[in-house]
Design a protein around this nucleic acid. Sequence first.
RNA 1: GCCGAAGUGGCGGAAUGGCAGACGCGCCGGAUUCAAAAUCCGGUUCCCCCUAAAGGAGUGAGGGUUCAAGUCCCUCCUUCGGCACCA
Length: 971
Amino acid sequence: MTDTPSSSPTEHPHRYTAALAGLIEREWQERWETFGTFRVPNPGEQGFDGTRPKKYILDMFPYPSGVGLHVGHPLGYIATDICARYLRMTGHNVLHAMGFDAFGLPAEQYAVQTNQHPRTTTYNNIATMKSQLRRLGLGHDPRRGVATTDPAFYKWTQWIFLQIYNSWYDASVGKARPISELRAALQTGSIGTRSGRAWDELTDAERREEVDSRRLAYLAEVPVNWCPMLGTVLANEEVTAEGRSERGNFPVYKRPLKQWMMRITAYSDRLAADLSTLDWPEPIKLLQRNWIGRSEGADVEFSVHPPPGTRSGALTITVFTTRPDTLFGATYMVLSPEHPLVDSLIGSEPPAGFRAGVFPGYQDRMTPAEAVATYRAYAKSRTDDQRREAKDKTGCFTGSYAVNPVNGHRIPVFIADYVLMGYGTGAIMAVPGHDDRDHEFAAAFDLPVEKVVQPSGGEAPDGCFAEEGIACNSPPVGESPYTINGLATPEAKRHIIAALESAGAGRARTTYKLRDWLFSRQRYWGEPFPIVFDEAGVAHDLPESMLPVLLPELKDFRPESSEDPAAPVRTPLARASDWVNIELDLGDGPRRFTRETNTMPNWAGSCWYYLRYLDPENDSALCGTDAERYWMAGRAPGATTGDGRGVDLYVGGVEHAVLHLLYARFWHKVLYDLGHVSTIEPFQRLFNQGYIQGYAFTDARGAYVEASEVLLPDGTRAVENQDHPGPYSYNGRPVTREYGKMGKSLKNAVSPDEIASSYGCDTLRLYEMSMGPLEASKPWNTRDITGSFRFLQRVWRNLIDEQTGASRVSDIASSRETSRVLHKTILGVRRDMESLGYNTVVSKLIEFNNHLGSLPSVPLEAARALILMLAPLAPHISEELFRRVIGGSSSSLAFEPYPIGDPALAADDEIEIPVSIAGRPKHRIRVSPGLDAAALEAAAMADPKVRELIEGKTLKKVIVVPGKMVNLVLA
RNA sequence: GCCGAAGUGGCGGAAUGGCAGACGCGCCGGAUUCAAAAUCCGGUUCCCCCUAAAGGAGUGAGGGUUCAAGUCCCUCCUUCGGCACCA
């Protein structure tokens, strides 16, 4: 590690060195802990001051990894800590805490690797991480630091699951309601049964089916993403675009399995619509909107043309389209190969002038039945990867024709795998003139193309025109209710939909890409479900009194990992037979049950942890009403309204844009509907911090080598001089440099402990904030840290005598100049603090401190302001300076009022105004700051140099911006 | 392919449409010192130039709007991130 610049202790015994910084930091961390400085009382608790407004400042829930932190991890934590400290000093009650998201795959994998129980490794990791975080001086409320693996925590995760399980989405009012109300409504008939039969006529099993099929948490046999290497299923959101697992990058296969699902799709509309109320970065909102994938269109019914000599005429195929205005151009139809109607569609009609099959293995002699069977087998054999790579259109004719409802044309029906069963209705009307995919398919099959839309103000182009335009080529007015010639696309859509509705052939519909959330995992280290199955295999929810359902002890907790995608699925918990098989009395006497042996996914705990921070010790509710109303809704006890902002600032990485943030919003909305929380959204303001990146090095085989051991030609370490272009070597062998996100996998991690030991954590905090804007990704450069360290040294030296350790500050009045610099600094720093512009806060403080360094003696007023402004960023040195220089009785400056700037005192006596000729600055004049436009122009024209510049030329125009500039435009 | 973000000195970066390069790193020079470290002071976009003054060019490329563009608009290039036959 770098040697810290230091002086001999005898020369400067009280210089701010790494050793002194370490002493100060340890001492103040202990004091904060002893005094409970960052413990914040809840409403009703001793010390609570309801007159102060609240702020809830939150970091994304950290995962306690086994390998410790690198300097990239605390970037956001430092930022929220600075924010929280600033808000405390500006008169807010601040909730700022950090717990641990400790269930889940990585913890379990780490336990497997090190051959320990996940509980052991998890709690060890939490302890390690807590001490690393403590060393950074983060002002968290310690009693709120919950872990999802604590039974006292996951009791409430299970409780929330039961709330979701025991509710249904009432679309007529657009919210979740208790399942008991559904049962009552079905009974009275105010809600019809799915089967259309009366409730009284149904058997118990049928009634249960009616209810269960509407629950927000339900069991379903669905095609899931099965990852045999992880031995578990994954949610859609956990599978990458390449069809591999986000964790571990293992192959993922589709496979049908009975699993717990969450009906997040019921909330699609609200999840999309409420984004507009949030103060989030637009790209993140867009990411969520795209994931939800709302699209408006219509369902259109096509009746199947009965083949001559048959009597089956009642078959209709429903398609979804976003372009009902192109219905006149629908020249064929396509169903997904998995569509349930395919079997009944197989006919014997000959293809009328088009090719009946295009796919490997197709032969002209095949009957439609043979072709369909062969094609389905072919489509099934193709993996998602193969489908993505080969985009050539394949498919085959079913031997049937359908009728286009708007013009009665007879159009052939195909199956093709470019139509997905999982979206819309799994069937489309194909408009090759106005859809690129349909166009490609039509080209491959020699199908007719008809143009029914033209660009507004232009000829219809050759090929395919997929954009909006003007409808054309529909029948003349009066001949058809569907006539839309001349209408622009939006009007044409409306007209067609209305006509379809009155003809009973279709209706407006909105669909979503979002799928229901797969909520089961076949792992050990997760929350058990509060569900048991009776001997008939019927699921029963456990009463609240039986919570928590504790995770059983297991010697062998490993999942059954396999490379075979067809290997049987067995959960680790199924091996705990004493736990699985139980006798319970659920109200009708003791009966035998077996427990659900899946566990919940990692996301469960992180979906609601921010609510537990509010009231971590509550044993009778997930959090108390008063605490929830105060910290989330901003309602002080007794008040009837609040700001309803929820979490005021939520800082975390962009990688959670769709996963965590979508799931948590969903749970929060369910809890809101059921009356358990009082805000519609959990996180009002979201901020995505950037990544810290670094150079990484690969050897000849392309393997990463330890970046800290790579040398430059002169034998120095490459990390000490990142500007050096190389060549680089590792153990005497040449290596190549790359640039990427800091982390274990690139072997370029820098530990915060290492930096804190060499410079102190105040320097580390300051450096991380100086690197650039919080939201930007930026390269770590160890060499630059010294700048932040030297700044703190200069602050210390300006205020403390390095020989004696005594204060050098004198109780004298500030000069006019110092006062002006001081107030300018305060005003600027406050503005930047509000916008999280901590990089420019640091530079303003450096400038201010440099000014103080030029003075013979630092006035007390300036010293005090400097210390308090520095305190959120570098809290330890600031506490120590405050104690030594300002003194006073308080145990910490954490609640000292933040300096307030006075614009009058910040005003300059005289300012310099640039005078430009044709926009190019040529000269500067000194004027008093208050001059209006006319006076400023007069001052410029009176200046001898300006007169010289424009001499002999004609002035065409003069632009004057008071306080800014004068621009002279010459003819 | 579609969507999003970003391109500014040797490096990290700063700049409500109004003096481009604040602040820091590095580098150069000076003071201090027996010497060094540390510290302090000064300089540091590029070109022209012994130097300075004075010029000129300059924010990925090319156009445009404007008295004035790093900033707004259009086209393109590069890098990074997301999605991927979503009807």
